[in-house]
Amino acid sequence: MRIHPVIGEGTKMDMGDALPGDEAGRLEEALATVVGDLDPELRSRYAFQVILVPGGGGPYVGLSDGKYWSGGTALWGGDEGSALLSVAEGLQECLMEVCRVVWPECPRHRFGLHARGSREGVVWACEGPRPHVVAPVGALPQPSRRLGGRS
């Protein structure tokens, strides 16, 4: 995976040095980890990348065709934990706002999970009636159920 600035709708240009190398690398590694948590159907349907927007916007998680959601917080890869947390949130936002898919879902309560920092690291947490940690980000049990989405 590489960092891509979006030039126009659906157009991208490779720009591996758009961010400091260590930050770009952390974001790319974090994206690979979070994508690994996706259920196989979503992995086969959507391809993700870290993108930059003209005028210095981003980086954000976007689709390989250049579509992205910039309504959330830009990604930050200052350290491994921050990169993993921000990419997990960014991928969730992209799935929800661009693809209309809620992911991941708590297997017990069917509520959407949230990426959270904890003493154990970055985790997928259910904030339902009985809040609990479901799994570390990168180790979500498969298949993860999802709500909504386009066919």
Rank of each mutant, 00 (worst) to 15 (best):
M1C: 13
R2W: 15
H4V: 14
P5T: 10
V6W: 01
I7G: 14
I7M: 10
E9N: 07
T11I: 08
D14Y: 12
M15R: 09
G16S: 15
D17C: 13
A18E: 06
G21M: 09
E23D: 04
E23W: 02
A24T: 00
G25W: 12
R26Y: 04
L27M: 06
E28G: 08
E29P: 12
A30N: 00
L31A: 04
A32H: 06
T33M: 11
V34K: 02
V35I: 13
G36K: 07
D39W: 01
D39L: 00
P40W: 07
P40L: 07
E41M: 05
R43H: 11
S44F: 07
A47V: 08
L52D: 15
L52F: 13
V53T: 07
V53R: 05
P54Q: 07
P54M: 01
G55Y: 02
Y60P: 06
V61A: 05
V61N: 09
G62I: 12
W69K: 05
S70C: 01
G71R: 05
A74G: 10
W76V: 13
W76C: 11
G78I: 01
D79G: 15
E80H: 07
E80Q: 09
G81S: 11
S82C: 04
A83H: 00
L85V: 05
L85K: 02
A88K: 01
L91R: 05
Q92G: 10
E93W: 01
E97F: 06
C99G: 12
V101Q: 06
V102R: 12
V102D: 06
V102Q: 11
W103S: 04
E105P: 15
C106A: 03
R108W: 15
F111N: 11
F111P: 14
F111Y: 07
G112V: 08
L113S: 06
A115T: 03
R116K: 12
S118Q: 04
R119L: 11
R119M: 08
E120C: 14
V122Y: 04
W124P: 02
A125Q: 11
A125V: 09
E127D: 08
E127M: 15
E127Q: 06
E127N: 12
G128V: 09
G128L: 10
G128C: 12
G128Y: 10
R130T: 14
R130D: 14
P131I: 02
H132E: 12
V134E: 02
A135P: 08
P136M: 14
P136A: 09
V137P: 07
G138N: 04
G138P: 03
L140C: 11
L140H: 14
P141H: 15
R145A: 15
R145P: 02
R146C: 03
R146T: 04
R146N: 06
R146P: 00
L147Q: 12
G148F: 08
G148R: 13
